[in-house]
Design a protein around this nucleic acid. Sequence first.
DNA 1: GTCCGATTTGACCAAATAGTCAAGATTCCG
DNA 2: CGGAATCTTGACTATTTGGTCAAATCGGAC
Lengths: 223, 223
Amino acid sequence: MGEVLDAKLDGETEEGEAKRQPTRIQAINREIILEAALEVFATHGFRGSTVDQIATRAAMSKPNLLYYYRRKQDIYYAVLQHTLDDWLAPLEAIDAEGDPIEQLRRYITLKLEMSAENPAASRLFANEILAGAPVIGDFLRSRLRTLVHDKAAVIRRWVGEGRLAPVDPVHLIFLIWATTQHYADFDAQIRAVLGSQVEQPGFYEQAAQAVLTIVLNGIRPRD
Amino acid sequence: MGEVLDAKLDGETEEGEAKRQPTRIQAINREIILEAALEVFATHGFRGSTVDQIATRAAMSKPNLLYYYRRKQDIYYAVLQHTLDDWLAPLEAIDAEGDPIEQLRRYITLKLEMSAENPAASRLFANEILAGAPVIGDFLRSRLRTLVHDKAAVIRRWVGEGRLAPVDPVHLIFLIWATTQHYADFDAQIRAVLGSQVEQPGFYEQAAQAVLTIVLNGIRPRD
DNA sequence: GTCCGATTTGACCAAATAGTCAAGATTCCG
DNA sequence: CGGAATCTTGACTATTTGGTCAAATCGGAC
């Protein structure tokens, strides 16, 4: 393992063999499988998950599931692929020409919303990275790395212009990742500590409020 | 300290059967096993780890390892047990009578030091919680919950006295957990983004500096 | 309806894995 | 040293798991 994902996934296009148009049933079942697999991989990681678990969750026999994705690895790649781009979008959206505090408020808010709406995706990455990022390692070292350095440069400029308190931009980005993904990744812990409170409407707004208050005050330039 | 996990672990004491004094070899080998198991469980989680992996890492045959811990579960319990108390100590050490900013600076610093010194322990918990905290769930719902609520009350008082900016204490605690554990749990990602920079002396001090700056400024009362 | 490719699955296999056991090796203590 | 208790391991078993296959069923274009 440890490849750029693109190559593997749509890997049947090669070799002159005309790729068949996917049928309606294929589209539906692949979607069902990816959804089930996301949930399973997000909870137990690649090695801790079984094809049977995924098949059961997808309400499908194991051979049928393997008809759509021939190997456990293929499912894993597909799920990661399916989720990766979305994950970067908010960071990409930071606009160097915008107002620093406003841009970062927006970034944090978007990340928190993603954690709330798709916690499984966050946990999927968390598991992959805990395992040492064997599959997305190359992706992290190339695309993510470039993106982070680009946006860090933007933030560094803002700091230089006195529009943000002096702070290391990369560590600021890490801090934002940490705080926003925490609500998805450590959901079980948060539920253990807060109980039913987590279910109450407005819980996520309250969390967002707290994170935004602390982080934005933390980087607002002091007079 | 007595914890929830006790019951399962040293379960042979009961039944009048006198527990033998552990021999020197036992003490050494159990230590070796726990160290190896921590590393393996921290990387792949309980389900993703194999007894063989642990045995290999402990430079020991599998049956020999199973002579010391009869089941995979037993090793897992023992490793968690071995690490749990340490993990709570810093939060417990927050002193209601101290200076708020100073107490929180100390708490953050201690947590960051623990992440740097024993990242595997942090990842072990991360894996356990991602899996839904099947083993330490009761612990989280009892001891951790109580402790968090106690310390949240302390922080709430500080806020009430105007010694901290108005912020939800529980979310502040979560934010501190998130940011401090991030450097251990997401080490692979951080290395991917920063490369060899992570190895340079002073990297952790720099991280600590950034986190402390942002968080402490974020909660310092505004005039 | 008919037919052909697409879909589904029961039965199966080989490898991996948790755990057992009895016999041999080592350590400890007098 | 000598013997008992402790420790170690090769060989083994039962179960789980990833993956295959051929045969049965289904769906849709004509």
